[in-house]
């Protein structure tokens, strides 16, 4: 964390203070970028309209206007609701997002935690949000919410598996679970003796990358996997009874998680903070690493949002069948093939 200012050696509490601010930035900046760039603008252009244009140049301050609007909304809790669970649910979802950002490295010395179980930790904390969503669905004491919560749980559980299994191919190739070492393995790797661009695993693990992206789409409950919040069937699913600030917390968590999952995909498959042609140990990456990572986040999430705006919604049985009959067998085959290639070559 501290070699940008090379000479200064920071105490643990100082590092933690910097990391806390960095975590806020890492959660909110990609989320804001994605909402403005894709949800407001790209979606509008794809639908032949302009999107927000009034607040700031090209509507770029629309986000602040939205937060201001949500701040003024009355805080309504249904009388029948389980108040504690209802209030705790957005906290659980947001904390899950903050824990997810922890494993991402943004440069050789820019990391929140550097643990040997990095990937494993990320996949574990990403499923905490399921609990928050179930709490929201149950605590609202509304039929739409309950149906939405159950649908969400069924979907997130089914797509958790392809997500986890797709990552194993990367772990086999890199030989480590540490995110920092996975980045270095891609930076220093070579494809059959050709090492000019390193070995971004998207080339050798393309199937894994594709499965990962589809599973991420489902984990985010974005169209075409938005059954839990299908507005034409169950109003807004588990979000039905949430309004004002509490709704905004869910919204922030959803798009922050979209950004972080894109960052995970970028780190695992596209080389993370590394760009080809430079020495991965160079101090330069402590400066440009976060920007490189943000660029890759925007690129990966372009795919995610492109799918979101293009495909119609799945039917619930199609959704489950895609996970269990297509993605999981493919992911298992991917593991076996990767393992064989790793041992033979």
């Amino acid at each position: 964390m501290n070699t940008v200012v090379t000479a200064v050696e920071l105490a643990y509490w100082q590092q933690t203070a910097i990391r806390s601010v960095a975590a806020l930035v890492a959660v909110l900046i990609p989320a804001g970028t994605l909402v403005y760039l894709y949800l407001f603008k790209m979606m509008s252009f794809m639908q032949s309209r302009l999107g927000p244009m009034e607040a700031g140049p090209y509507g770029s301050l629309q986000l602040l206007a939205e937060v201001g609007k949500f701040l003024q909304k009355e805080d309504l809790i249904p009388r029948a609701a389980d108040r504690v669970v209802f209030k705790a649910a957005p906290f659980v979802v947001l904390v899950s997002t903050f824990l997810l950002v922890l494993v991402l490295p943004a440069g050789p010395d820019l990391w929140f935690i550097n643990v040997d179980t990095g990937v494993f930790l990320a996949l574990a904390v990403s499923s905490i949000s399921v609990i928050g969503i179930l709490m929201a669905g149950w605590g609202s004491a509304s039929k739409y919410s309950l149906l939405g919560g159950l649908r969400a749980a069924g979907q997130l559980v089914a797509y958790e598996l392809p997500l986890v299994l797709a990552v194993i191919g990367v772990v086999i190739q890199a030989g480590t679970l540490n995110m920092q070492e996975i980045v270095l393995a891609q930076a220093n790797g070579e494809i059959f003796g050709w090492g000019a661009i390193g070995n971004p695993f998207v080339i050798t693990q393309f199937l894994g990358f594709a499965i990962f992206l589809v599973a991420v789409q489902a984990e985010l409950t974005q169209p075409p996997f938005d059954m839990p919040v299908a507005e034409s069937e169950i109003v807004a699913g588990y979000l039905t009874e949430y309004s004002g600030m509490r709704f905004l917390l869910f919204f922030i968590a959803e798009f922050a998680t979209a950004g972080i999952f894109a960052a995970l995909a970028a780190t695992l498959f596209l080389g993370g903070w590394y760009v080809p042609g430079l020495d991965p140990a160079s101090d330069l990456f402590n400066l440009i690493g976060p920007l490189v990572l943000l660029t890759k986040i925007v690129l990966v999430s372009f795919l995610i949002f492109w799918f979101r705006f293009t495909y119609p919604r799945f039917r619930e049985d199609q959704l489950q069948q895609l996970a269990w009959k297509v993605l999981i067998p493919l992911a298992l085959a991917n593991i076996v093939v990767t393992g064989v290639l790793k041992v033979v070559f």
Partner: peptide
């Protein structure tokens, strides 16, 4: 410990 602190930042 950092994990716990950042979780607290979320809350």
């Amino acid at each position: 410990l950092t994990v716990a602190v950042i979780g607290g930042v979320g809350v």
